[in-house]
């Protein structure tokens, strides 16, 4: 029923009530802020990116190309970028590691970017892995801070396991997600959870992304908020259907019991984010203030 509004009255009681509710919410927020998200404090690896130039070669190596050499063109996801080790794509400057995704014709690809790893340089089983990162913006950008099992050559993915500490899609600037991939729960069926930032964005400020990983548990946190805790039981629970549908004998197995190495990259396009669109501005950069590992 459409009718004209007649009188206007300010309901003071209502305002008072809403004030109380607001105070209530604030109090519960305070509680959240004091929660303990990580317990390990003994640093065993750190790069503060304080020396300008190429990333420290004793810590970092590069995945180069479009994945063809590795037998997975498009890196298994139909990604569009060609990874290089050029300073145009990866460099340390002003106290930051800077990974830059560019739109340019290069080796039959339309985009370039970089993917650096600690494979064979730093690999660790369990511990706390953390990085402080500012992320890029735009449809088609898919940066990540993640871990891969160090025996994927003998034990092909997903059996070697993948722990995605932070993934992000450039057209959702307030959301990151943390995931694990293993046998019977991988790709689109990985066990994953979003974390949405309230009143802030991931592309305008630095945020801390981390996991604390122990024999039967991986806890995911952003800044001071623990948002996901994965265990063999929770994987069996959350991936129940895909595990049941899997042909693998070891479907559902908890494979996070071997050393993993660190990867940081920006992918462009691919199955998950889709390609960049006309609104995507290049170049786009991911700034990493530090990477620290504790046990």
């Amino acid at each position: 029923m459409n009718k004209k509004y007649k009188s206007i009255k300010l309901n003071k009681a209502c305002i008072a009530l809403s004030l109380i509710i607001i105070i209530g919410i604030n109090t519960s927020c305070d509680l959240d802020e004091t929660q303990e998200v990580a317990t390990l404090t003994n640093i065993v690896m750190q790069d503060e990116f304080n020396v300008d130039g190429a990333p420290n070669p004793s810590m970092w190596t590069y995945d180069i190309g479009d994945g063809s050499d590795q037998g997975i063109p498009g890196w298994g996801n139909e990604e569009l970028q060609y990874y290089t080790d050029r300073p145009e794509n990866v460099v340390v400057e002003n106290g930051m590691l800077v990974i830059t995704a560019r739109e340019e014709s290069f080796e039959n690809s339309s985009y370039t970017s970089a993917r650096i790893t600690t494979q064979n340089l730093f690999e660790q089983q369990y511990g706390r892995f953390e990085a402080r990162i500012r992320l890029p913006l735009g449809k088609g950008l898919w940066p990540a801070f993640w871990l891969l099992g160090n025996d994927c050559d003998q034990n092909p993915w997903p059996n070697c396991g993948e722990i995605d500490i932070m993934e992000y899609l450039g057209d959702e600037p307030t959301v990151v997600f943390g995931s694990v991939h293993g046998p019977g729960y991988n790709g689109g069926d990985s066990v994953s959870k979003d974390y949405e930032l309230e009143n802030n964005r991931f592309d305008t400020e630095f945020h801390i992304f981390g996991i604390e990983w122990s024999p039967n548990r991986i806890n995911y946190y952003v800044d001071d908020v623990l948002y996901q805790s994965l265990t063999p039981e929770s994987i069996a629970d959350e991936a129940e259907e895909s595990i049941a549908d899997s042909d693998l004998d070891n479907a559902g197995e908890w494979v996070f019991n071997r050393p993993f190495y660190i990867i940081m990259n920006i992918a462009v396009g691919g199955n998950l984010p889709g390609p960049p669109n006309a609104e995507t501005v290049f170049p786009q950069r991911m700034f990493v203030d530090y990477v620290r590992v504790y046990n």
Partner: peptide
Amino acid sequence: ETLGTNLTT
């Protein structure tokens, strides 16, 4: 509202 999520591009 104060959203904190608008970025001038």
